[in-house]
């Protein structure tokens, strides 16, 4: 047996409730994050990712309380993202029981923040979330750029160089979301994943676009992802974590089934 590929359900949370937007717009309510996390943990999820999509300062206390409640009942790794901007934000989340924090916009605004965070808390708890969008034309070599604010704000930063830079600054893991695919249910951007995964030596979590179980398997087999993240296919009961793992195992992927 070898290291298992991880399946990570993602909880997008707004004011203490799990929601999932289709391309960040159409919001449907999917439940209480503590109950949802516990259900996924019992069902065999390998980690939980909690993304605070409101990230407004007034609601910060709700988020911290929710993270604390999840961490008291869920004994698998918990990553918290959304609005992580300072070392103090990281400290608060780790103290609330998060194992890792995911940094996105703050890394773009101030790349040195990632270096400081990794030096202070260790690379093992610093995930850099990268939202990438294809910017190359049909007949050009593939090229992706970094976007912030749910894909609305272009930065002009080339994605592969950016990921390499983030890893050299101490990012221990990359959460890679295709902004072209997020919410579409047509599968991961496999070229993006494979390109990033071969460019760096830290684990890559593929995200954005999962609509069926084959997409998860493709993320590993073709996209060379170390972990696959999905939200809506699990939240709305289309598939269970167990079904996803059995489907992947049937395709020869090492997963944790015990």
């Amino acid at each position: 047996m070898a290291l298992a590929k991880r399946i990570i359900p993602c909880l997008d949370c707004d004011k203490g409730r799990v929601v999932k937007g289709v391309q960040f717009v159409d919001i449907r309510d999917a439940g209480d994050p503590v109950e949802v996390s516990k259900r996924y943990c019992d069902a065999g999820a390998d980690e939980i990712t909690f993304l605070d999509i409101t990230a407004s300062h007034e609601d910060r206390k709700t988020t911290v309380d929710t993270v604390r409640a999840i961490a008291g009942q869920v004994f698998i790794p918990l990553t918290v993202g959304g609005g992580i901007r300072t070392l103090e934000d990281i400290r608060i989340m780790l103290n609330a029981g998060a194992d890792k924090v995911s940094i996105n916009t703050a890394a773009v605004n101030n790349p040195e923040f990632v270096r400081e965070a990794a030096e202070r808390y260790g690379s093992q708890c610093i995930v850099v979330a990268v939202d990438a969008k294809r910017v190359s034309a049909e007949d050009e070599p593939l090229r992706w750029e970094i976007f912030t604010h749910g894909g609305r704000n272009p930065t002009g930063i080339e994605a592969i160089d950016w990921v390499k830079r983030m890893v050299s600054y101490g990012a221990g893991e990359i959460l890679l979301t295709s902004m072209d695919r997020d919410g579409t249910k047509i599968g991961f951007d496999l070229e993006l994943n494979k390109t990033v995964s071969t460019a760096v030596n830290v684990p890559i979590i593929a995200s954005g676009g999962v609509g069926e179980l084959d997409h998860l398997a493709d993320g590993v087999l073709k996209g060379e992802a170390d972990a696959v993240l999905a939200a809506s296919i699990f939240h709305f009961g289309e598939y269970t974590i167990r079904e996803a793992k059995e489907h992947m195992a049937a395709q020869g992927i090492e997963v944790r089934l015990d």
Partner: peptide, 11 residues
């Protein structure tokens, strides 16, 4: 190729 860190569930 195996990535480093060794991160995840192993037997």
């Amino acid at each position: 190729r195996l990535k480093v860190p060794h991160m995840g569930w192993n037997s």
